[in-house]
Structure formats: structure tokens, C-alpha cells
Design a binder for these strands. Sequence first.
DNA 1: ACGGATGCCTGAGTGGGTCAAGTAATCTCT
DNA 2: AGAGATTACTTGACCCACTCAGGCATCCGT
Lengths: 135, 135
Amino acid sequence: MTEVTEGLDQQVSDLVFAYDAAYGRAAQTVSLSAAQACLLEHLTADGCSMGELAGELLCDASNVTQLVSRLEARGLVARVPDPADRRIKRVSITPAGQRVRDAVRRAFDFPSDRLGRLTQPERHQLAALLAKVLA
Amino acid sequence: MTEVTEGLDQQVSDLVFAYDAAYGRAAQTVSLSAAQACLLEHLTADGCSMGELAGELLCDASNVTQLVSRLEARGLVARVPDPADRRIKRVSITPAGQRVRDAVRRAFDFPSDRLGRLTQPERHQLAALLAKVLA
DNA sequence: ACGGATGCCTGAGTGGGTCAAGTAATCTCT
DNA sequence: AGAGATTACTTGACCCACTCAGGCATCCGT
């Protein structure tokens, strides 16, 4: 590894640390944990099943059960039984949940504060590099 | 926000998600939590105080107490009283701790697997962009 | 020497996360 | 149609991370 590459590793580590911290702060502004905010962000309009959420969040299904239960207790999501398969519970976001989710997005200042420092050509460059890294 | 910028936000989110997942997996290979591995990684040769660690990890001092206690119970770190100020406990890494820390580094495949996809000029580009973002 | 900071620890409480076992609904195969 | 396997979710037990309030020892300024 060259000098530059080692510096790059550290920079990526710092980026992730700053991102996680900013996300946690944004969630806290509406008394949500990062995990709860993350789940809220993953909900789609037609409603995800619990299993789909567990797959996307890379965690156990029983963990999703608890997260959804807490969000449901606050009235931010609702469990809707799937008419076609009654084993399935579809999690849909309520109007109150949408307001909270939007508040988290507004409070999440990482994109504007950090990525906003780049010029438009620089963003294109970064997007191209990240596309290669994430492919 | 333009189309490209929104895509960039998503890419950064994906990057962070992949990084965190990879780090957690690396820590698990030696039965450590991500938080424990992270603390181990922050230790310096001369020994950090508990308070310094809490500052770097952005968490409560009592949280550091518990993390260090668990690592100490496994023989990976040691609490060394500071000779100049007996309130201070300096946390130093043991030889066993160094071996575990190195194992985590080897198991952490994100830099090689992901950043390794970039050419040397691309790494320079990315490093420059991240420097601007993190400044 | 005394009072306020400082550094760390303890105990209680919440939440995230996994695992094992359980229940209900669906699917398969004959 | 019906028995058995499979799938989707829940429950209970458990551990860890994290925070907060309170406590104890030590250090520092006056």
C-alpha cells in the first residue's frame, strides 16, 4: 500500500464516522434512534413486508418486529395485513410518520453541509468513483 | 438539487452502509462487537485515558468504562494508573490485544475489495475530493 | 486547608441485536 | 382433500451499547 492509499483508507473511515454521527443527530431531533429512522426511510408507498425490511436492513426478522412495534406505538407506521397472503404484514407509513420522516431528512445536514462543498463537476467525479467502488 | 446530486447522496449512503457492515463482520471474526474493535483501533502506544477515548468515540465516559472492562476481561487491554495524576487510568493494549486488532485489520476487506477497484490516479482523485468534503 | 473541578466508576434504565421456540397461514404432493 | 413441509411473523430470553444520575477519589486554585 502506498502512502496515498493509506491516507485514503483513513479518509473513508472519517467520512463514515461523520456520516453516522450526523444521521444519529438528525434522528434524535425527533426522538428517534438511527435504526428507527433508517427503517422509516426504507418504507415504500405500497408497504414493505417485515421480511423484506429485514433483508434490506441486514438484520433478524425479530428485530424488525420490535422496531416496527415501537414505531407503531408512536403512530408513525401501521401493520396492514396482506389480502393475498394473510401471513404477511405490510408496514405502511402514516401521515404522522411522513412528517417525522421529512423532519429527519431536513435535519440531516450531511449532504448539504459536506457534499455541498463540492462543485457540480466534482460531484460528477465523485459519483463516477463511487459507482466503481460500489458496483 | 439536481438529478446527479440526489444520486450522489444515495451512493454515499450505500457506501456508509457497506462500510459499516464490513467492519461489523471483521470484528465478529474475533468475537468482538464493532464498538469494541473501534476502541481497540483508537488506542495509542503510550496509552489513552478513558476521557480521551470518550472524546474520540463521541460517547459517554461510562460507556468507555464498560467497553474497556469487557476488553480487559478478555485480556486485550490493561488499565494502567497514570503516575502523574492518580485519577487517570491509561488504557494500553496487550500483546494479545495487538494480535486481535491485527486480525480485525486483516479481516476488514472493505479497503482491498472496494477501494482496490480504483486505479492509482482514481485514488488520488477520490482522496482530493474527500479532503474537500471532510475539511 | 478548603471548596470546586476533574476523572472515573456504579446502578438503573432504554434500545438494538441475535437466537430458539412457537403459532398461524400457505404450499406441495399424493 | 389432507398430512407434512415451508414461510412469515411473534415471543421470550439474553447480551451488548449507550445514556443519565449519583458517588468517590484526586487534583488544583485561593
